[in-house]
Amino acid sequence: MKKIFLIIISLVLFFSLAHRSYAAPTPPLDLLSDLLKILFSFQSAPDLPTPPAITPIISPDTTPPLSDINQYFPKPLNPLSPNLTAYDRNDVLTCLNKKTVYELASGYTGMPWQILAAIHYLEASCGEGSLVSGRAIGTCEPDLANECSTGRSGPGIPIPLPGGCCGMASLSDSAIYAGKHLQGKIGKNPVNFQDLVIAFDRYNGLGNQNCGVTPYKSCPRYFESEDHIYPLNWFDTPRHNTMYLVYCADHVKCNPPKIFARPGALTVLRILSGN
C-alpha cells in the first residue's frame, strides 16, 4: 500500500521537476494544468509554422492613444484580415520607436503622424531608410533628380549631394517631404477614407491596382484605388484578404501576379491607432 502511494507521489514530483527544468516560469495554475496535460495529453502539437522570432522594442501590448485618425476609417470597420500575423503586427509596432520624428514632420505638414509612419513602414519598414524610397539618408534619390540646389534649403527640401544628385539630409526631412508629397497627390490634406486611399495609391503609382489584371476577387472596386495593394492590403476581411503585386520592377509585370504579403498603409494605420 505504502509502496504504491510512494510511486504515485514520486511520479508526480518527477513530472513536475521535469516540466520546471525545460519550461519558462508560468503561473501556478498553468503549471498544474501543463503537468496534467503532460500526464494526460490528448492534444497534438500545433502544426502551424512559428513566425521568426523578433524582439519588438515597444511592447505589442502598448495601445497608442486614439486621435482624430478615426476619420480615415470606414464605419463599421470589419476585422483585420486573418492573413495579418502577430509577427506583422509586432513589426509595425516597431514604428513607434520613431514617433518623435513623425510628430515633428506632422507639425510641418499637418498630416497625422501615423500616416507618415505608414509611409515609412511601406518604404523602409520604419528603419533608417528614407520615406521617399527606403534608400539610406544622404544617398542619391533617383526620383529627386534635378529637384535640389545649393541656393535652396529648409525643412523637407532635398539637398545636392557629391556627384550632383539630390537626396535627403535627415530622416525628418524625408518625412516632411513625404507628407507634403502625399498631399500633393490629391492637391489637399486628405480628410476621409477615400481621399487617403487615393493619395496612397498615387504615392505608390497606379500600376498596382488589381481589378482586371489579377485574380483579385473583390471586383468591381467601390471607388478609384480601392483595389490597390499599397493602401489596402489586409485592411479588412474578407474584401482585402488577398491582393496581388502587378509590377515586379519598373516596366516589368509579374507573370503571374504575385500575392502581396505585406500590410497596406491603412492597415498599418489601423494597427498604430489601435483600431
Partner: peptide, 28 residues
C-alpha cells in the same frame, strides 16, 4: 483534470472573431 480544464476555459478571454459586416464604403 476536469475541474482545472473548466477553470482554464472560463479564465480565457473570448476570442470569437466578429463576423464581417457590409461596410459603408463611399460610393463612387
Amino acid at each position: 483534470v476536469i475541474i482545472l480544464k473548466s477553470l482554464q476555459k472560463s479564465s480565457q478571454p473570448q476570442t470569437q472573431l466578429p463576423t464581417p459586416t457590409i461596410i459603408n464604403y463611399p460610393s463612387p
